[in-house]
Write a protein that binds this DNA or RNA. Structure first.
Lengths: 188, 188
DNA sequence: TCCTTATTGGAGAAGTCTCTCTAAAACTCA
DNA sequence: TGAGTTTTAGAGAGACTTCTCCAATAAGGA
């Protein structure tokens, strides 16, 4: 039923990821996405109603891909495995890690369609809930303890990734151990 | 000698910092800086030859302001005081902390004039040297130990700042303690 | 085969951005 | 006061961007 698509949404988002990796979030213009995907601008606007919608989808696709593996690692291997996964995933998905490094705001989050913002809030809430559940299991009840738990499992591994991405080189394999060891120490 | 300046470089950079804090690095267009400082675009181009030069100066002014206090804290109070300073400075300078949060690349670092890139490299090298010196004093000789030392003093406090800035609220005072405690634990 | 539907491909309007250029203004010093 | 210098103030060129619109195209189903 209808002509088969040549430039589907995923292909366009792949092109956008490449633009972020090379030139930062500023490089993701609708014209640049079309050029990078060898598609006419009309096809881009056929998939995404406007630029905020494309940027929102770029962020959502990336963050949910990351979160899926993170939640699985947390479930099967506990907090230290979660910390390790943050680094491992970034090592294996450097361009997408650069998207996450930039943060949602860099992609104009306030301008996103409400529906996309809701989906993001739901995805984030799922991760928060898993963290709270695991934290409770481990006996972290007070706010201060949960804060440190989150620091060890999410923020610290992320800092390891960041300092590597900022240098522009590959992330060495041993950095996953660095993050895991540090997380273990912080969790006491 | 000559007409007194009404729109000096610092005032324009202040306006640029405000734009970053509100709308991210993307919001720093030459036209927006002029608007925010209530100056005509000609005055902006009188101070800065082009946009990359302005963005470079924005980054350099911010990062050197931060580094000055950081080096002083490191000198007088050691690594834990350094870690604490990262959070304290960000707490007191939220808009400028948002500039640092974005990273040099977000401001088009590759396009900066060579002279500015050299100045940045020199400023960064000064911090690296101080870190190496302090690390050696504390007996961190191996690469792996230095990596963890840097993690504890710079990257981890930065991660604490980041998770607060991303939420968009003020940074609570206790977060400085969180960073200091965590740094102490990591340094063992 | 013809109708329906989905998609392409690109021209072009309207706006924004960077940057240039010049006349006027405002100060200092002789 | 007048010469010299620095800065303002803003018009405008040219490039690039977002987004609209529509004819042409390619498939499936009756």
């Amino acid at each position: 039923m209808g002509r088969p698509p040549r430039h589907d949404a995923d292909k366009l988002l792949d092109a956008a990821v490449g633009l972020v990796a090379e030139g930062g979030p500023r490089a993701v213009t609708m014209a640049a996405v079309a050029r990078a995907a060898r598609a006419p601008s009309g096809s881009v606007y056929h998939r995404f109603p406007d630029q905020p919608a494309l940027l929102a989808e770029l962020w959502l696709r990336t963050v949910t891909r990351f979160q899926a593996g993170f939640l699985a690692a947390l479930d099967s291997g506990g907090p230290v495995a979660g910390a390790r996964h943050v680094v491992e995933w970034s090592r294996r998905n450097v361009p997408e890690a650069r998207v996450l490094l930039a943060g949602a705001r860099a992609f104009g989050e306030p301008d996103w369609p409400q529906e996309a913002r809701d989906r993001l809030a739901a995805a984030n809430e799922e991760v928060f809930a898993a963290m709270r559940r695991l934290g409770a299991e481990l006996g972290f009840t007070r706010k201060r303890e949960m804060s440190r738990f989150q620091l060890a499992v999410v923020d610290l591994p992320y800092a390891v990734v960041r300092r590597n991405l900022l240098r522009g080189e590959e992330i060495p394999a041993f950095e996953a151990d660095v993050a895991a060891d540090a997380a273990r120490d912080l969790l006491g």
